[in-house]
């Protein structure tokens, strides 16, 4: 017996006071649901760590050839590498993490949409729980390994970094939510998934720091939403950005993504509930 993909069945017919409790419970639910897959999470952490080492050598070679490139020194570059590997799990940078596509295909989404709580916010709450769990299990191993093997710097301002990281997770959720909703219109979602994978890995800074992208490509990448997932939190971590400006840009993207998501939810509600799928 599978657990219903969303905790929506447990959403009470809410008096307003219960709303916060509901979302808090969903966060916990998302955390606990993923905590049952310890082996898979540890295996992911292992893979992320191995790739972290490989990426680190490439970056070290580049920064040996060009010390001070993009305002980073070698230590910054190595830190960038391992911390971004730690982002992969919590931010689901290779896509997925949401059960919405399955539920749209099976038709169960109709059940979620008639509940009195917002599908988008319930999903977000659960995703934050998932991210919290993976932050620990998939985030710490690559970080510790990087520190032991190569040495990395501590966050410049831990509080600001945590806020920026959380905003990054929300932007990533917003993007993945939009990708997930696209299943409703496209029969085969592998196409959108692959396009999303290419855009996210390339333009988030996951592959290489955006600061070393040449000319126009660099300006373009900095202006796109994916930068708010990886590059901006990393600049806050390394103390390379003005904190308030960085958080402001992220907040802007959060607003845009969640706004579009709300619009998308309304469209699929129309399609699924009113037209009957």
């Amino acid at each position: 017996m599978r657990i219903p993909a969303h905790g929506l069945l447990s959403c009470p017919h809410s008096p307003e006071v219960h709303t916060i409790l509901l979302y808090a419970r969903l966060v916990r639910y998302g955390f606990r649901k993923h905590a049952t897959y310890v082996a898979a999470a540890l295996a992911g952490a292992f893979t992320n760590s191995v790739f972290g080492i490989l990426r680190a050598y490439v970056l070290i070679a580049l920064w040996q050839a060009r010390p001070g490139l993009a305002g980073y020194d070698v230590l910054d570059a190595v830190t960038f590498c391992f911390i971004t590997q730690a982002f992969i799990g919590p931010m689901q940078l290779f896509g997925g993490g949401l059960t919405i596509p399955e539920r749209i295909r099976s038709g169960d989404i109709a059940l979620d949409l008639v509940r009195p709580a917002s599908l988008q916010l319930c999903s977000l709450a659960e995703d934050l729980g998932r991210a919290g769990y993976l932050f620990v299990v998939r985030g710490l191993p690559p970080t510790i390994l990087g520190a032991l093997l190569f040495g990395i710097t501590a966050p410049d301002n831990p509080g600001a970094f945590l806020v920026s990281f959380t905003l990054g997770v929300v932007v990533s959720f917003g993007w993945r939510y939009l990708v997930a909703l696209s299943v409703c219109w496209l029969l085969d979602d592998r196409g959108t998934m692959a396009v999303s994978l290419v855009l996210t890995t390339f333009f988030s800074g996951m592959m290489l720091p955006l600061g070393i992208f040449p000319g126009f490509l660099g300006d373009l990448a900095a202006a796109l939403p994916w930068a708010a997932m990886v590059q901006i939190p990393m600049d806050v971590y390394l103390g390379k950005a003005d904190i308030w400006q960085a958080l402001g840009v992220q907040a802007l993207w959060v607003a845009v993504m969640l706004g579009l998501g709300a619009l998308g939810t309304r469209l699929i509600r129309h399609r699924v509930v009113i037209q009957g799928g």
Partner: peptide
């Protein structure tokens, strides 16, 4: 679509090499 996308995804690694060499003439 899948053939084209496979091509694109695989292109990411080449893109990384090209970006690196837009900053330097030699790597190691």
């Amino acid at each position: 679509i899948m053939t084209v996308l496979g091509f694109l995804v695989a292109g990411l690694d080449v893109a990384a090499i090209l970006v690196i060499f837009s900053n330097t003439t030699t790597l190691a």
